[in-house]
Structure formats: structure tokens, C-alpha cells
């Protein structure tokens, strides 16, 4: 579903991401982990076609993002850490606009269902300025899921959500994966990733320092330190990367 090969993004001469390669198959959830400035958001922005990669190839649901951007973008959704909305469109008008962009004929039915799931059914006439941050986040999610994407990218998806919202978000991610979506989540909340991710990729300074399934990675580090969790794995892997550098 998501195939990344030799992805490199340079800002002038500074490499934000270097030679990154990985694959996320249908039904898998990849946790993208790394310290601040590791290149996680840049990676997600390249994968979603917001910024062009300097080198490398990205294939979304079999479509090359550089060669066939439109077909690739039809299959994906990206949820940035900061919900970005049009301040003059109401909740429902956001859905109408998104439906036209993705040509979703039965948007009314899907939209109402999504809003009900996200507990926003009574907020259809509100403007973004009248919504809390969590509600804005939910509206972005409703818009992003309207066209039933096969590939989903989340950048810090739990920011601004209340405990119930966090629970629902985790369930929603797992449900989408069960339905066959390939998902990448970038987050600093390692406990969340441990709960929902099947795979982990640790980035540091734009370089991949570790990747594999969650079980493989935890097992690998457990050999040295008993029952390792993702937090310990992260600290040890980044420390080792520092020592090797």
C-alpha cells in the first residue's frame, strides 16, 4: 500500500530526511517515532504530496506519487497535528466542499454517519471559530475520511482530544486498519503507539535507525533489558545512534 524507496528531502543543502525506505501493507499500522527535528513531519508531508521529495520514490496504493499524483492522492488522507480549516465554512459546508473535491456522490449519508461517530451531529452549522480544538480535529478527520481513503497519515493525532476522544481515536485507527487501510502515525506518545501500531520506525536526524514489527523490536531489546517497552527501546536506540555517530 505504501512503498517508500530512498526518500530524501533537502532544504537547501540541509537533509531533513535521508534515503528513507520502508513499506506499510494493507491493515498495518506503522508508528513513526523520533526526537524533535528527526524529520517525521517532513516525511509525512512528502508522503502525502504536500511537498515534493528531492529524491526517491513513493507509491501510494500502487500509484507513483511523483508520476501520478492525482490517482495517488485520491487514495490517501493526511491529518496534520494542527487542524487547518476554512474559517468561513461551517462544519457541513466543509463536508460539501470536500465531497466535490473528491467527487463523493453519497457524501450526505457518509458525512452524517461520520459526524455521528465523532459526536458532532449537532454541530453541523457551527463555524470553526465556534469549535474547541478537539472538535476542529474531529472535523478534519470527518473531512479526511469522507472519501474512504486506503492510506492514512496521522501527525500527533491525540493532541487536544479528551480521554473519551483519545479512546475513540484509537478504536477508529484500529478499525480502519482492520478494514484494510495502511496507516502511519507520527507521535511522541509511545504508549499510544505501543497500543495501536503493528510496526515501528525510529528516525533520528532524518535517518532511519531502527524499524520492524512491534514484537520483533520489543523482543530484540528485551534480550538485553528484560521486559522492554517502546519507551526504553526508543531511548536505547537513539542513544546507540548517538554513540555510533
Amino acid at each position: 500500500m505504501i512503498e517508500v524507496e530512498g526518500l530524501t528531502k533537502l532544504y537547501d543543502k540541509f537533509p531533513a530526511v535521508s534515503e528513507l525506505s520502508f513499506t506499510v501493507r494493507s491493515g498495518e499500522v506503522l508508528g513513526l517515532v523520533g526526537p524533535n527535528g528527526a524529520g517525521k513531519t517532513t516525511t509525512l508531508r512528502c508522503l502525502s504530496g504536500i511537498i515534493p521529495a528531492t529524491r526517491g520514490t513513493v507509491r501510494i496504493a500502487g500509484e507513483d506519487l511523483a508520476q501520478n499524483a492525482i490517482a495517488a492522492k485520491r487514495q490517501l488522507s493526511f491529518f496534520p497535528d494542527e487542524p487547518r480549516l476554512f474559517e468561513y465554512l461551517t462544519v457541513w459546508q466543509h463536508l460539501i466542499f470536500t465531497a466535490r473535491i473528491y467527487q463523493v456522490v453519497n457524501y450526505q449519508e457518509i458525512g452524517r454517519q461520520l459526524l455521528a461517530e465523532l459526536e458532532m451531529a449537532d454541530k453541523v452549522d457551527l463555524l470553526p471559530g465556534e469549535l474547541s480544538r478537539g472538535m476542529k480535529q474531529k472535523l478534519v478527520i470527518a473531512c479526511g475520511l469522507l472519501h474512504s481513503p486506503k492510506v492514512i497519515f496521522f501527525d500527533e493525532p491525540l493532541t487536544g482530544l479528551d480521554p473519551l476522544g483519545i479512546r475513540r481515536m484509537k478504536d477508529s485507527i484500529l478499525n480502519r486498519a482492520r478494514e484494510g487501510a495502511a496507516i502511519i502515525i507520527s507521535s511522541h506518545l509511545l504508549h499510544l503507539l505501543e497500543e495501536v501500531c503493528s510496526h515501528v520506525l525510529i528516525l533520528k536526524g532524518g535517518l532511519k535507525i531502527l524499524d520492524g514489527t512491534m514484537d520483533e523490536i520489543l523482543q530484540k531489546f528485551s534480550e538485553h533489558a528484560g521486559d522492554a517497552n517502546l519507551e526504553e527501546v526508543f531511548f536505547r536506540a537513539t542513544r546507540e545512534a548517538n554513540e555510533n555517530a
Binding site: 474559517e87 465554512l89 466542499f97 466535490r100
Partner: peptide
Amino acid sequence: KKRKSPPFALRPTGIYAVAFLWKNLI
């Protein structure tokens, strides 16, 4: 801010540019 009425009903299919016209007229 006050909610603004859409200038016309936007159908879910058709020319993409019209969606931007609709949005920006709102």
C-alpha cells in the same frame, strides 16, 4: 463570525474549480 449562506447549491460532482468559487463566494 456569522454563518454565511452559500451562493448556490454545490453538487458533489462536476468541475472542481466551481467548488473553489463556491467556497470563496461564501
